[in-house]
Design a protein around this nucleic acid. Structure first.
Lengths: 172, 172
DNA sequence: GCAAATTAATGATTTATTCAAG
DNA sequence: CTTGAATAAATCATTAATTTGC
């Protein structure tokens, strides 16, 4: 109604163009100083505030991801390299457990190929050969199971918290 | 390439989705038995091995940590200009190099010249509240982490206060 | 052709996670 | 275990497109 002030920012074509160029150029989450400058720049083309810039990047990034995700979700019947069948939830095998969780492996895939971690190499070859009686230390948090089709393994809530991992296990 | 055998695992969208959901759900470092089951499950959607699952979680976690750490480091020491551009950093920024030096955009620099740190508070209320100017931006001491000097924005560097975004943090 | 009504885009807020530090 | 900092996801709200009836 009041012609003087609109309730929300309405980007001009120039502003939009510049923002999109920046986004394409790689800008995703500008920090305060960056936002300041962008705002200063764009203000030459029309009224704008820092928050508008901030929101624009947030929304743009989020909606890009959203769009991509949707496509992937809908991609239910396309490439399958081997076979595709409804997930019948494999029963837990248990009794086998051990992984080289020592510290962090930053780019394991790369490193292992080149050469390096002793554990890695064994992993790439024969996997899970170690036996153990670890009672499945599952997800440390989040008792609420994801609503999606995630029923991989029975989360033995029993003693989940009390569980102390073997030294090799605890990465943190 | 030889269709018969790929040199490395190429996750299908379904596999990726499931993995991401698990990660979001709290799974960080699955142990051997968990990996076994995950692998069994995912193999319904395409060729996959246990090591792929292992590496995926390792990489994902590491990547997350790295990303976060960069921000935290910046925040702790003193805010560098942290440009968040994807690996393929655009060498040439075409027209939008920022810094309103592109001819008609020059006066914009006025704001940044002041080097005022800004604080954003209350999402829609007071945005970018400029605080006092800190003429001594660069940390005088203990700069353990060498700045990446990725400064796209020449300006700055001056201690720009980062924004706080209010997140409802009442009682967790 | 044009306006009211309906739908799609997108700006602005709120809420929930995440990792790290104390 | 709690708190801090910073998002990203989810959601609300308003503007623009478009559809539809006249």
């Amino acid at each position: 109604m009041s012609p003087a002030g609109s309730s929300r920012w309405c980007p001009t074509p120039e502003q939009l163009m510049i923002l999109e160029e920046m986004y394409i150029g790689g800008m995703r989450t500008p920090n305060a100083s960056q936002i300041q400058q962008i705002t200063a720049h764009l203000s030459l083309y029309g009224k704008i505030e820092g928050k508008n810039v901030f929101y624009w990047f947030q929304n743009h990034k989020a909606r890009d991801r959203q769009k991509l995700r949707r496509k992937l979700t809908k991609h239910h019947h396309h490439h399958h390299q081997n076979l595709q069948s409804p997930p019948p939830l494999p029963s837990q095998h248990s009794s086998i457990g051990f992984l080289p969780q020592g510290g962090e492996v930053e780019d394991a895939s790369t490193q292992m190929v080149t050469s390096k971690p002793m554990v890695m190499r064994s992993y790439g070859r024969d996997w899970m050969v170690m036996l153990d009686v670890v009672p499945t230390p599952i997800t440390p948090c989040c008792n609420t199971a994801p609503p999606k089709t995630l029923e991989l393994f029975p989360i033995t809530a029993t003693g989940l918290k009390d569980m102390h991992f073997p030294s090799s296990m605890s990465s943190n």
